[in-house]
Design a protein around this nucleic acid. Structure first.
Length: 169
DNA sequence: AACTGTCGCGAAG
DNA sequence: CTTCGCGACAGTT
């Protein structure tokens, strides 16, 4: 059945749900309470015991200390999401650690001018960190948005050693 | 029909 | 040169 992981990373809490060796959802929050709200109360009871989630836990800890971690080989449960969303997320996964791209960059690669639609797709990303939607910013190098809260986006970029004016606003 | 995690242009300071 | 307002854009609910 489902397995859950809960982990405190510096000021934030991160949680993950998996099912049969595939990730179902990840979320980053400001408190445990928010985590339960977004991942479900089951998270309260269960502890991540599958080897799969143990590996994820180690990877997340390493990442948080500034190591380069490759998250691209985690298998993700993508059923039920639209083709457009999947394409956007796939391109986002191709952005290397330590670099950023713009919403426009992604749209262009999909031969679309739906910049805002790209933003909307990223806003619904079920796998923050794993699919690094924080590496997508505006064309003019300003920060853009982040559904889990902009300070988290700043923090992640900072961990990856990216230096941009928008990180110090 | 109304909403976005946008972009680029034109006008004004 | 910088900032601001606004309309166009495309995909989702």
């Amino acid at each position: 059945m489902h397995d859950f992981l809960k982990l405190k990373l510096s000021p934030y809490w991160i949680g993950a749900v998996s099912e049969k060796g595939r990730l179902v959802k990840v979320s980053v929050c400001y408190s445990q309470k928010d985590l339960y709200r977004s991942l479900g109360a089951a998270l309260k009871e269960q502890t991540g015991s599958s080897s799969f989630l143990k590996r994820l836990k180690q990877d997340l800890l390493s990442y948080w200390q500034g190591e380069r971690v490759d998250f691209t080989n985690y298998s993700l449960k993508l059923d039920g999401y639209s083709p457009f969303q999947r394409k956007v997320w796939k391109l986002t996964q191709e952005i290397p650690d330590g670099e950023v791209r713009s919403y426009k960059w992604i749209a262009k690669r999909l031969r679309s001018k739906g910049y805002r639609a790209v933003g909307q797709a990223l806003a619904h990303n079920p796998f923050p960190l794993i699919i690094p939607c924080h590496r997508v910013i505006r064309e003019d190098k300003s920060l853009g948005g982040f559904s889990a809260g902009l300070d988290i986006k700043r923090k992640l970029l900072q961990i990856e050693g990216i230096s941009l004016a928008c990180l110090y606003e």
